[in-house]
Design a binder for these strands. Structure first.
Lengths: 102, 102
DNA sequence: TTTAAATATGAATAAACAATCATATATTTG
DNA sequence: CAAATATATGATTGTTTATTCATATTTAAA
């Protein structure tokens, strides 16, 4: 990285790329989307709503948790997931608001 | 997809995931970032600024063009790239504005 | 105290991506 | 037209990521 004044610095770009990558998947986007309306949802609830196979969903959820996008709390048999950083929602809002015809 | 009223529909989620995925890479984000300040830049200019190997950069650029994020126009020896949808910038702005400590 | 329900785990495979390299093509200029 | 410059292409390889499946773990309840 060199020569020109950057709007965003390298570190920020890398972080952004990292989170975008984590979220750039239909199912995972849908999860973030859901959790931006629903505060917290159990694996099962998400599973039902998204019609996603349980273990696959688990993989997604755990991955997103690992990468700092979700948090989870156990309550009896259930595990509830929620957005860790409410800020992730901004991304979603962005996508919504943008009438972009990509 | 079922049962619950969705904030974003499936198709939109898929499109969003698609574009996010395309952009979710440090170099490609940097390219979008650059082009959100610079209107148009030649491959060489981008190459120099980002210190990215020429053919690798070409691959990235062509890929992003293919996916509808960039456009290009040839001018003599040079090929100038620019953002196709100015809207992509919104994403970047989002990332900038979000003081998110992901 | 067995059974069922919810979730997680891990291995295995397949598919997508990133990077590198060598080379091709097109354009300009001497 | 030969050389130089800018860009593109394509094959190859290595790395990540996605999906599936079978099974383990934990908790609750009959």
């Amino acid at each position: 990285m060199a020569a020109v004044a950057y709007k965003i610095n390298k570190e920020k770009l890398e972080k952004a790329a990292f989170i975008l990558k984590t979220v750039a998947h239909p199912t995972r986007l849908a999860i973030v989307d859901l959790l931006s309306i629903q505060e917290r949802l159990s694996v099962n609830e998400i599973c039902t709503i998204l019609e996603c196979e349980q273990s696959l969903l688990s993989h997604h959820l755990i991955n997103m948790k690992l990468k700092g996008i979700l948090r989870s709390e156990k309550d009896g048999l259930n595990v509830f997931y929620s957005l860790k950083e409410r800020d992730v929602t901004k991304l979603i809002e962005c996508i919504e608001n943008c009438n972009c015809n990509f």
